[in-house]
Amino acid sequence: MYDLINYLWETGLNLLFSPEIFEPLVFPGLIAAFSLLIVVIWLERKIAAIIQMRYGPYYISRHTEGALQLVADLLRFLFSEVIIPKSVDKIAYVLAPIILFAFTFLPIVVIPVSKDFAAIDHEYSLLIALALMTLYSSFLLIVSWASNNKFSFIGGLREGFLSLSYEIPLIISALSAAVLFDSFNLIEIVEKQAAMGWGIFYNPLAAIVFLVVIIYSTSRYPYEIAEAESEIVIGPFTEYTGILFGLGMGISYIKLYSMSLLYAVLFLGGWEPVVWPLNLHPVLPGIILFIKAFIIVAFSVFLRAVYPRYRIDQALRIAWWKLFTLAFLSLLFSYGIKIIEVMG
């Protein structure tokens, strides 16, 4: 009997700590993403408040400057009634945000945590992550259409316009990193960076373009066009209530998180450097990756306090003229570096 329990315990632990389960569910997957969500939304409100000389969230847990505000918000979302308006398309209205959340979440699964710890170790894992990221906008269009509301429809159309324009610079700037390190495998890219140096120093142009595209595509501040609060309430999620609204609010942050992880892997050296306490278990280097991604996320939410909002035509012009050309230039730049390497 004791043996059986022991056996079950060990296999269970093994199963939990196998990359295929641990990565999507615990770290950097669901649990890590949720805790990051809670911290980041609080941080966004707090940073904006401090820069505008206010207090921000305060009264829930006064000693920690209101850090538990988002937990309280989440509880409220969970227990408030989900109202389904009469005029919506019911199936799409309920299902689309859930599917959208799942699809936004998927790219995290491909991103490795360390050399020996990846749920999917594929030779084209960078391309898989990018391909999964491009599915976001069409589901958002369905969400906005299903609500049958003027504001959500306008928000969805704006997101459609933006997505058609940001996908090309996103893919090209990621590909220029792939050209630089001569691989589509994210683990290999990090290994090369450990040997050569971080990608941001080799190709700063691509790094800048990718960073701007992260901010652009997750509707953070100068490009917060799809869910512009002061114009169209909250964009595609106007009609939503309760936990569905909570999902909708979290989706752009989850996307920001997954793209920041990809950014850290491509340009910031991933989980390198692996120093002493981190080489004890293959999961531990992920902490460094997480910290790097968190810095990117924190920077993106900090921009809320700095910028006003672009008009949609300005944003589209930036995407098609500047980002597009800069992305192409960064690709050429990467090829130049490769040629210099081959010659020298």
């Binding site: 999964l132 491009t134 906008s137 069409s138 429809f153 459609g160």
Partner: peptide, 19 residues
């Protein structure tokens, strides 16, 4: 197929159909 066809083309169709 995922990037070019599903991600861009069909999204474009969906986007146009919405209008």
């Amino acid at each position: 197929q995922l990037v070019v066809y599903v991600g861009a083309t069909v999204t474009f169709i969906l986007f146009s159909v919405l209008m």
